[in-house]
Every structure is written in structure tokens, then in C-alpha cells.
């Protein structure tokens, strides 16, 4: 099972902060991607509880990710109750892995003496 938090650090001369994607480099949206990656498919209610958001706020973040093609939102029913499911797209998996790798690189540059 792959874990984006175990992703290798990218190499190259460019500073890792230059490659940060504004869509992903945001606490809530990174949280959504992480949970969706780990869970394979996650329900709106679980995301709202874990990320401590209002429904409207979460919807806005989901809209940003969906527009960027990083997630798919599926609406349906479980019994009589309406449900919204979120699934990561392939682009979402890639974006998450790259973000995690860049975060690790940023941290290592800050922590390594002379690595600024």
C-alpha cells in the first residue's frame, strides 16, 4: 500500500517552495487529499468531522479540488439518506505525493545547516 508521506524527496536545483501548488498547499485541501488517498473513498460527513469545518466551507474546498481535477465528487443514497462521496483522481494521487515530497524537502532544507 503506497503512502504519500513516505514519498521520496524530489531532486533538482530549484527551491522546493517554487514548485508548491497553491491548490494543494493549503491545510484543509491537503487534509482532504490525504484522507481520500488513505480511505480510497470518503464520505462528506467524515471529512467535515475530521477537518472540523462547516458544510459550506468544506464544499468550497471540494469545489476547488474538483475544478483542478484532483478529486471526483459522487452523490448518491445510502438507504434513504443522501450521501456525497469523494474519490481521488490519478492527478490527485500525483499532486498529493508531490506536495508531501516538497514539504519534506522544505523541512530538510530548513533543518540542514547551510541548506538554505
Amino acid at each position: 500500500m503506497s503512502d504519500p508521506t513516505d514519498a521520496p524527496e524530489p531532486t533538482g536545483p530549484a527551491h522546493p517552495a517554487n514548485g508548491l501548488d497553491d491548490v494543494v498547499h493549503q491545510r484543509v485541501r491537503l487534509g482532504i487529499l490525504t484522507i481520500a488517498h488513505e480511505a480510497r473513498r470518503v464520505e462528506f460527513g467524515y471529512l467535515r468531522t475530521q477537518l472540523e469545518l462547516t458544510g459550506g466551507n468544506l464544499s468550497q474546498h471540494l469545489g476547488v479540488l474538483e475544478t483542478a481535477g484532483l478529486i471526483e465528487v459522487e452523490k448518491g443514497y445510502a438507504g434513504r439518506r443522501a450521501r456525497t462521496w469523494v474519490t481521488l483522481t490519478q492527478a490527485g494521487h500525483t499532486a498529493l505525493a508531490e506536495e508531501i515530497a516538497r514539504l519534506k524537502l522544505l523541512i530538510s532544507r530548513v533543518e540542514t545547516p547551510g541548506g538554505q
Binding site: D3, L30, G31, T34, I100, L103
Partner: peptide
């Protein structure tokens, strides 16, 4: 913080 949050959520 982002990395720690991500690990905690996973």
C-alpha cells in the same frame, strides 16, 4: 505543521 497534520489524518 502540514506534514504533521497529514500524517495524523492518515
Amino acid at each position: 505543521r502540514l506534514l504533521a497534520d497529514s500524517r495524523r489524518l492518515a
